[in-house]
Write a protein that binds this DNA or RNA. Sequence first.
DNA 1: TGCTTGACCGAGG
DNA 2: CCCTCGGCCAAGC
Length: 103
Amino acid sequence: MEHDNSFAVRVWQIVAAIPEGYVTTYGEVAQLAGSPRAARQVGGVLKRLPEGSTLPWHRVVNRHGTISLTGPDLQRQRQALLAEGIQVSGKGLIDMQRYRWRY
DNA sequence: TGCTTGACCGAGG
DNA sequence: CCCTCGGCCAAGC
């Protein structure tokens, strides 16, 4: 059993705070979580969200402003972003100047 | 208690 | 712009 201040819990809290219509990066979430070099782990946390989670995991992309997932997963994230008004090119590129979440 | 696994990132070529 | 490499570190086994 893990105490409720694990890295995963901190990541959940931060991602939950990203407003609809905005995105941020794995590196930014890691920084806010207090582990600036754990961007890779942020992806790991989002990959293993509990079944039925409502966390807006799709609002997190890589530093290039592109979707890191591939294949069908990429399409699912793209649709989720489009559904809330974020423009995403066919290749998964997002205009970060316009949609980046500033804390 | 190790050892492996990456939805990452920055520097180089 | 593309690709590779090394470092990173929480979680899963």
